[in-house]
Nucleic acid binder design. Structure first.
Ligand SMILES: [Mn+2]
Ligand SMILES: [Mn+2]
Ligand SMILES: [Zn+2]
Ligand SMILES: [Zn+2]
Lengths: 143, 143
DNA sequence: GTGATATTGATAATTATTATCAGTACTGGT
DNA sequence: ACCAGTACTGATAATAATTATCAATATCAC
């Protein structure tokens, strides 16, 4: 597993250890494609490793983020989620306000338009977050 | 003051009262053009009205929101802010990650592109939130 | 005025995140 | 193998923002 390898390398380069808990948390995160909150990942981890604490899960997610293996996603519902960042290009999200289902969206045109706005005001762009909220097809039918 | 009037009307239509605390909080919010958090507004209110509690400020902001006089803004820094919505058309924000300064941005093209994305996936759009983060001109110079 | 209802502000509860810290595990040098 | 110095861990506490609770007060319709 390549990303696992990458994490080990990152830890090493920082003088940090590839401890068992870290590797186990990382493995489980990297194996799910879900956008998980810390709590959700903690629950997943607990199924296999009952001894691992919440703090370690939280800390490992931060390390994975610094290693460029995951990034935060904020749907504005009060809890942060994490998604894969390795070999997962930037994209934004279209989220259903009824059931939480979402799709990942991307448009080069849209990104370029944003760049122009940033330029116009003399800012130096770092990141951006676009969330579009609406009702998904399924939930429209349910109504 | 027109918006103040509108608030009174809204309260009336809901069978709610235009109590003194509500009106005072509303007036102070409507008079500042800042994007305030509940805590910041609470502090502003306190300067004039030492008897008003945090809960009332919070609740009044929610009412103002329902009345269409303000809307939430989330810069992703852990605290929600509120901005005027009455006679303030939709727009997004370009935020400085160093000093917090921001500019309000809008592009019809960008909005239309978003609509197309939503259509493409069969969603029914409700809202969207776009925050672009970068370093403002001033902070670039400081470096 | 009176009784029903809405409102208020202090306080507590909630929620997610982050910090603290004592005990444990690991490391590199000997 | 031993040891001294660090890093790491998990339980717990602290933080911070928001939301709920509730007894006291204010307001309204009659
Ligand atoms: Mn995603
Ligand atoms: Mn604004
Ligand atoms: Zn849905
Ligand atoms: Zn700045």
């Amino acid at each position: 597993m390549e990303s696992q390898e990458r994490f080990a390398q990152f830890l090493n380069s920082r003088g940090l250890r590839s401890s068992a808990p870290r590797s186990q948390v990382a493995r489980i995160f990297l194996r799910t494609e879900r956008h998980v909150s810390t709590g959700e990942l903690y629950d997943l981890v607990r199924k296999k490793h009952k001894e691992i604490g919440y703090a370690t899960v939280s800390r490992t997610l931060k390390l994975l983020e610094e290693a460029g293996l995951c990034r935060q996603v904020d749907f504005g519902d009060g809890t942060l989620r994490y998604e894969h960042a390795y070999k997962h290009a930037h994209h934004d999200h279209l989220v259903c306000t009824k059931c939480g289902a979402f799709v990942e969206i991307y448009s080069g045109k849209l990104e370029k338009l944003q760049d122009k706005m940033v330029e116009k005001y003399g800012y130096m762009q770092e990141t951006h977050k676009l969330n579009i909220f609406g009702v998904c097809p399924k939930c429209q039918k349910k109504k």
